[in-house]
Amino acid sequence: MELASVHFWPAWLGGLCVALIAVAYPVLTGRLLGVSGLYDLLLTSLRRRPAEETQTVSSMAELEAALAAATLEAFGDDVVADDEPGAVSGASGPEVAQVLAATLSPTRTRPLFLVGLILGAALASLSAGDSWTLTSLGSHFDERFGGDLAVGVVSLFVSGCMIGLGTRIAGGCTSGHGISGLACFQVGSFVSTATFWSTGTLVAWLFFWGLS
């Protein structure tokens, strides 16, 4: 596959889809859409931190007893039984809002969204009949680096790291600042978007045309 031969959707259709998800995401989850921020939150939730104000015990039974006491203190007799299904309880019947909140809790939506990003692109590519064998990163890249695919892969990896670093420093990426932030008229997002857009354009021009 050469990137120049990839069949992209029409720009208007892609833009419409992005706009729809940019509006639907905050309505459904209560958070603005930002892909790099989602990665950040997901990794933060996986990070481990030493326990505080605690003593280590070797017996699992001691831990079980301590947790049971804390659970009893927090919930009284309203403890879920072993064999009770994992649905939202505490009401006469599961209310729609409760079920919706459970379904859309961040622990579920964030990983699903990130997986969906990859699957969506793969489906679009498959439906367009693109080959999945990577042979080139495009004619401009080949002219500059002689068509060495290994160089291309390393370049992509380094570029990805730089983008990750930049979005971390800027507190957001093209989706967070460029779509959600701009739509909310956030000054920081205007500055950030103007900076990465103009810098990216300038570097691309210098890289492919200005230096030749």
Binding site: A68, A70, D78, V80, V88, G90, A102, S105
Partner: peptide, 22 residues
């Protein structure tokens, strides 16, 4: 007293799956 599984499920249902914002 109840089992570890009951305790964990209780916390999960009361917080993770419903009132996660608090």
């Amino acid at each position: 007293m109840f089992s570890l599984k009951s305790s964990l499920k209780t916390w999960q249902i009361r917080y993770c799956d419903s009132d996660f914002k608090v």
